[in-house]
Design a protein around this nucleic acid. Structure first.
Length: 480
RNA sequence: GGGGCCGUCGUCUAGCAUGGAUUAGGAUACAUGCCUGGGGCGCAUGCGAUCCUGGGUUCAAAUCCCAGCGGCCCCA
């Protein structure tokens, strides 16, 4: 028995399944340094797709890409004390260059607010210089000491960080929400992962932010995953870094700022949410290979005709801008190839054998449902294109259903505990707004407030923990 | 933050309890040749191991002890 396939069932040992799928589908590999990973071809290709999608969105709204250095002088980080306190436990420091100790140690960026904003102070003079809307794609380092997990928590990861400065609070506020919506679209329309959006509680907000908005998804094991954040920084950093401009009113003002990011963690979410016992199941819109064609050459059959037909079909699909691979390797049997491409999550497989040739058809198999049908040869390209759309929406609908099933409204703390114990997921509950209740709940159950949804609806009059007058309806969950 | 498990050819592993004799064995992968082909084909031959690293115990260590490195899981 071969062990090249996935040996663990997703429903039986989720963690093990996750690791195994990633390694065997060759998305990633471990690096020699603890908590670091190698992002392999297919995963990187997905990251590039995400970059393409998001770049297009932010360019359309006037943002431009830049690159700042990865070394940040300690003094910069220390300027905003809350920010520094939030990040210092996991900053990697450079203290020596060659043989020479550095006079001031350098942080390997855990995020770039400080180095960017020191520069903003130089760039911004007048209201005419605003808004500043920049973004960078880069790596960052957060020296995790706790458990690391492929894609979800590694010491180094890739992300994009957008940073903006505006003349007014309203404008910054709008930016935060616009970006949040763009993120939501990336996740739902492209990654096929539904998310809950809202504001973070103070204890969970970004260190140094005025407030943080976030997008939260639900994983099949009942744990929430933060998919992205968009922060309203208010004027905190502006004051610290002295980012001022002369307004139209001829007076001096501090800028209003935002920052926002998504990371390679999204790839881990795709694996978790859509994958199955055979391996990855990739949403067509971000799949590096959308269609694989496997010729079935029988002994005695006209294998040149079969291969020719496979290539011809591939050409038709490519003409529709689809990414297609013809797997004409002779050293593997068709059955072996089916399994391998399923492991890699390719959404659609086309089989072309003597039978198809004779009947001028192709056999089409979809990854999400394993359904196999035959399609007339000249209709194949259109049919596949349509099928890919169908798979994309099927994956989203499946995930949406799973999310909805994992949201439990509760009236009191015993219901809260039961729901969390039984199925995990999001617990929708009323909260008085006191951080102490939040913190006690965390200590007792491991669940934290993931978001305070924008659309508030009252589900109970009293706080789920202390019984005092409730102020907010929030989603709790255990999280990654 | 706390607890537990693990590390042997590229990969999965046997051997470890009770130290010595398996030449560290097998499967898979890889290479070559044949045979096959609509769900991980078959046969033959071949290649492939610092038993994670360092130290200790011992006449003798993959096996026991300690430390380090790396991985996994669970709990809060």
């Amino acid at each position: 028995m071969s062990d090249t396939g996935v040996t663990v069932k997703k429903s039986e040992d989720f963690s093990e399944w996750y690791t195994e799928v990633i390694l065997k589908s060759e998305l990633a590999d471990y690096a020699p340094v603890k908590g670091c990973m190698i992002i392999r071809e297919d995963a990187y290709a997905m990251w590039e797709k995400i970059q393409e999608i998001f770049n297009k969105k932010i360019r359309a709204t006037g943002h431009r890409n830049v690159y700042f250095p990865m070394f940040i002088p300690e003094g910069f980080l220390k300027k905003e004390s809350e920010h520094f306190a939030g990040f210092v436990p996991e900053v990697a420091w450079i203290t020596q260059g060659g043989d020479t100790p550095l006079e001031e140690k350098l942080a390997v960026r855990p995020t770039s607010e400080t180095i960017m904003y020191a520069t903003f102070a130089k760039w911004i003079r007048s209201w005419r210089d605003l808004p500043v809307k920049i973004n960078q794609w880069c790596n960052i380092v957060r020296w995790e000491t706790k458990a690391t997990k492929l894609f979800l928590r590694t010491r180094e990861f890739l992300w994009q960080e957008g940073h903006t400065a505006h003349a007014t609070s309203e404008e910054a506020e709008k930016e935060v929400m616009d970006i949040l919506q763009e993120y939501k679209d990336v996740m739902e329309s492209y990654l096929a992962i539904p998310v809950l959006i809202g504001v973070k509680s103070d204890s969970e907000k970004f260190a140094g932010a005025h407030y943080t908005t976030a997008l939260e998804a639900m994983m099949p094991d009942g744990k929430a995953l933060q998919m992205g954040t968009s922060h309203n920084l208010g004027q905190n950093f502006a004051h610290v870094f002295d980012i001022k401009f002369i307004g139209e009113d001829e007076k001096e003002h501090y800028v209003w700022q935002t920052s926002w990011g998504i990371t390679t963690r999204l790839i881990g979410a795709v694996v978790m949410v859509h994958g199955d016992d055979k391996g990855l199941v990739l949403p067509p819109k971000v799949a590096p290979v959308q269609v694989v064609i496997v010729p079935i050459p029988y002994k005695g059959a006209d294998s040149t005709a079969i291969t020719a037909k496979a290539k011809e079909t591939a050409a038709k699909l490519k003409a529709k801008n689809l990414s297609v691979v013809v797997d004409d390797r002779e050293e593997y049997t068709p059955g072996w190839k089916f399994n391998q491409w399923e492991l890699k999550g390719v959404p659609v497989r086309i089989e072309i054998g003597p039978r198809d040739l004779k009947q001028q058809q192709v056999t089409v198999a979809r990854r999400d449902t394993y359904q196999k049908t035959t399609v007339k040869e000249d209709e194949a390209a259109d049919a596949v294109e349509k099928l890919l759309e169908e798979i994309q929406s099927n994956l989203y609908n499946r995930a949406k259903k799973a999310l909805d099933e994992k949201i439990t409204p509760v009236q009191n703390y015993s219901e809260f505990a039961d729901a969390l114990k039984e199925k995990g997921g999001f617990i929708k509950a009323s909260w008085c707004g006191n951080p102490e209740c939040e913190s006690k709940i965390k200590d007792e159950t491991g669940a934290t407030i993931r978001v305070l949804p924008f659309q508030q609806e009252s589900i109970a009059a009293n706080c789920v923990y202390c019984g005092q007058q409730a102020k907010k309806t929030v989603y709790f969950a255990r999280s990654y």
